[in-house]
Lab assay of single mutants.
Amino acid sequence: TRVETATETAWISLVTALHLVLGLSAVLGLL
Rank of each mutant, 00 (worst) to 15 (best):
L14R: 08
L18K: 14
L28D: 01
T5I: 03
A10Y: 12
L28Q: 13
A6K: 10
W11Q: 02
L30P: 14
A6Y: 04
T1R: 09
T9V: 02
S13Q: 00
V3P: 07
G23A: 06
W11R: 08
L30C: 15
T1L: 10
T5Y: 01
V15D: 00
T9I: 08
G29S: 05
S13D: 00
L18Q: 01
A26D: 01
R2Q: 02
V27N: 09
T5M: 14
S25G: 09
S13K: 01
S25R: 05
L24N: 00
A10N: 10
L18A: 02
A6H: 05
T1Q: 13
L18P: 05
S13V: 15
T9S: 06
V15G: 11
A26L: 04
L14P: 08
H19V: 11
E4L: 07
L20N: 03
V21L: 14
A17P: 00
G29I: 07
E8L: 00
R2T: 09
L14E: 02
G23D: 06
L28E: 01
G29P: 09
E8S: 03
E4Q: 07
W11T: 08
G29Q: 00
S13W: 00
T1C: 10
H19L: 13
S13I: 15
V3S: 07
A17N: 10
E4D: 06
T7C: 12
I12R: 12
A10S: 05
S13H: 01
T1Y: 04
T5C: 13
T9W: 05
L31N: 01
T16M: 04
E4F: 07
E4N: 12
L22I: 06
A17W: 00
L22T: 15
L18S: 08
V15P: 09
S25I: 08
W11F: 09
G23S: 12
L18C: 15
L30G: 13
L24D: 06
T7V: 12
A10F: 12
V27P: 01
I12W: 14
L31Y: 12
S25E: 00
R2G: 11
W11C: 14
V27Y: 11
V21C: 10
G23E: 04
I12A: 12
L28P: 12
V3I: 07
A26Y: 13
T1M: 03
W11M: 15
V21D: 04
G29V: 13
A6V: 01
L22W: 14
I12K: 13
T1F: 14
A17M: 07
A17S: 05
T16R: 11
T16H: 02
S25N: 15
T5W: 03
I12C: 13
L24R: 08
E8I: 06
A17I: 07
L18H: 09
L30H: 05
L24E: 00
V21P: 07
A6L: 01
T9R: 12
L24P: 06
L18W: 15
T7E: 14
T7R: 13
A6E: 06
L14I: 11
V21R: 11
G29K: 05
R2A: 11
W11S: 13
L30Q: 02
A6P: 05
R2H: 00
L22R: 02
L30E: 13
S25K: 14
I12D: 05
V21W: 05
L14H: 14
L20P: 04
T7H: 02
T7M: 14
L28W: 05
L28V: 07
I12S: 09
V21Q: 04
E4H: 01
V27E: 03
L31W: 15
A26S: 04
L31V: 08
G29D: 06
A10P: 07
V3K: 06
V3R: 09
V21M: 05
L24M: 13
L31K: 04
V15T: 02
G29T: 07
I12L: 12
G23W: 05
E8F: 03
L20W: 12
E8A: 04
H19P: 11
E8C: 09
W11H: 07
T7G: 08
L18V: 14
W11D: 04
L18M: 02
T1N: 12
V21Y: 10
A6S: 06
R2L: 13
E8W: 11
A6R: 03
T16V: 14
T7K: 02
E8P: 05
T9E: 00
S13P: 12
L20K: 13
W11L: 12
T16Q: 12
W11E: 14
T7Y: 13
L20S: 08
I12Q: 02
A10I: 05
L20Q: 07
T5E: 11
L20T: 08
E8D: 11
L18Y: 03
G29H: 00
L22V: 11
L20Y: 10
G29E: 07
E8K: 07
W11A: 03
S25H: 15
T1P: 08
L20E: 10
V21T: 06
T16K: 02
A10D: 03
L31A: 11
R2E: 07
G23K: 12
R2S: 12
H19F: 00
V15I: 13
A17H: 06
A26H: 13
A6I: 04
W11I: 08
H19N: 07
V21F: 14
A6W: 14
I12H: 14
S25C: 13
V27A: 06
L20I: 07
T9M: 00
L24S: 05
T9L: 11
I12E: 03
A10Q: 00
L30F: 10
G23I: 12
V27I: 01
V3Q: 11
G23Y: 14
V27M: 00
L18R: 02
S25M: 15
T1V: 09
V3G: 11
L24C: 10
S13C: 15
T16S: 12
L18G: 08
H19K: 00
E8Y: 04
L28T: 02
S25L: 12
L20G: 09
W11K: 00
H19C: 15
L22Q: 06
A6C: 14
T7N: 00
L24K: 15
L24Q: 08
L18F: 13
E8N: 03
T16A: 13
V15Q: 02
V15E: 06
H19A: 15
L28A: 02
A6N: 00
G29A: 11
L28R: 11
L18D: 15
T7P: 12
G29M: 06
H19S: 14
H19Q: 06
V27L: 13
L14F: 10
A26P: 02
L22P: 05
L14Y: 03
L30W: 00
T9Q: 13
T1K: 01
A17D: 07
L31C: 15
V21S: 15
E4T: 02
S25V: 04
T16W: 15
V15C: 04
V15L: 13
T16E: 09
I12F: 08
